[in-house]
Simulated scan of single mutants.
Amino acid sequence: MIQIGIDVGGTKIEAAALDANGQFLARVRSPNPGNYDGAIRTIGELIARAESEAGAMGSIGVGTPGSISPRDGLMRNSNATFLNGRAFREDLETALGRQVRMANDANCMALSEAVDGAAAGARSAFAVIVGTGVGGGLVVDGHIVEGANGMGGEWGHVPLPWMTAAEYPGPSCWCGQSGCLDMLISGTGFRQDHAARSGQMLDGAAIVEAARHGEADAVASLDAYVDRLGRALAMIANIVDPDVFVFGGGMSNVEAIYARLPAVIDRYSFGGDWKGQVVPARWGDSSGVRGAARLWPR
């Protein structure tokens, strides 16, 4: 049987069909309609299109922003807010008449990269998603670690570790806390930090390019970003100590961070003897939909 993966994004919903070797048999997408009933209808249409192109029916896995509460089965913490408080998996199964497996989109990315991506062969991998916000997912021995409360990997909503006096208490976060990584090491946080330093609101690529040419404020912004990101990763290393950190999201395209982060992680990790890997995702933007498909074993 083939595997169908669904990636529910903020602006689009994508479906892909994979064969037993992980090759794409079909890949289709539609705009996210931005409402609950429309999303369920769109997912059904995309599955039908993917299976038609692939010429077979498949198992169905769905990657979503947010997570399912293990207590009441309802969605929570999704930036696609129309999903929150809804029994999304059950309603989708009713609409499709088929069984569905569902996981957080960052967990799906981690699974994809652990199966046949940049972390293939590693016992443990932590997915680092740094884009508009910050997400994460942990896979150990080929299995997603969601935790007892379904909150595993939610490192975006812990405070920046080893804050300096100038950083404390950090900006207020939409979650209600202050100093969250989501506000400081996301692409958004990178841009805002540079704007506060230079008075210029530039996108991340422009800041990195300016730093490459030696522009002082841009160099300082990139240095501060790498140090904060390294501190955050060192905290994960001290708790989980994954073999591989795999990066996705817009900031994963900043090639300069990969050579610089290991030394920062090593400096802040307990004992100062960290020797893990920091690598970009092999499958890039395809990791989410591939990981969703892989929620069912081959």
Rank of each mutant, 00 (worst) to 15 (best):
V244D: 03
S59I: 05
I4F: 07
A15F: 05
G150Q: 01
N79C: 11
G85W: 01
T164Y: 00
E113G: 09
S112M: 04
I257H: 04
G58D: 10
G249Q: 02
A293E: 01
D217K: 14
R41E: 15
N253E: 12
R86N: 10
L74Q: 15
A211Q: 02
G250V: 02
T132L: 10
I239E: 08
G142Y: 01
D116M: 14
P161F: 05
S186R: 05
G73R: 03
G189M: 06
G55Q: 07
A95Q: 09
S252Q: 02
M57C: 14
V140Y: 13
M151H: 14
A218K: 08
E146Q: 14
G55H: 07
W283M: 10
R89P: 00
Q99E: 15
A237R: 07
D19V: 06
R282Y: 10
Y36S: 07
Q23P: 00
G204W: 00
E215K: 02
F245L: 03
S30R: 15
G34E: 02
L83V: 06
N35L: 11
V139Q: 03
V254K: 00
E93D: 04
M151R: 14
I13K: 01
F24C: 10
W174K: 15
H157V: 10
V254E: 05
P262R: 02
A110V: 08
G170Q: 08
A80D: 00
E154S: 11
A56K: 14
N253T: 11
T188H: 08
P297V: 11
G142M: 02
R29M: 12
D91T: 05
I239C: 14
R49E: 15
F82L: 07
V246P: 01
G131Q: 01
T42S: 13
A232H: 00
L138I: 13
M201A: 13
A234Q: 03
T81L: 12
N104L: 08
V244T: 12
G66I: 09
A50R: 09
N104R: 10
S78E: 05
D116E: 14
V278E: 06
N84F: 01
G199I: 05
L261S: 03
G199E: 02
R29G: 12
D266M: 06
W283A: 05
Q3H: 14
S78L: 06
R260P: 00
T132F: 09
W155M: 14
G189P: 06
T132D: 10
Q200E: 13
V158E: 09
A281I: 09
A120C: 12
N77R: 01
S287D: 00
R267N: 06
D193C: 11
S286K: 15
I2K: 14
M163W: 07
A210T: 00
G170P: 04
E255D: 11
D7W: 05
E51P: 09
A26E: 01
M201E: 13
A119C: 09
S59V: 09
Q177D: 13
M201R: 13
V62F: 10
A148D: 07
S52M: 10
R71V: 15
G9A: 07
A80N: 14
A87S: 13
E53C: 11
L229T: 06
N77L: 12
E209P: 00
S69R: 13
G137E: 04
D223G: 10
G136L: 06
A17V: 02
M251Q: 09
I265L: 08
S252T: 05
E14M: 11
G117C: 07
A292V: 12
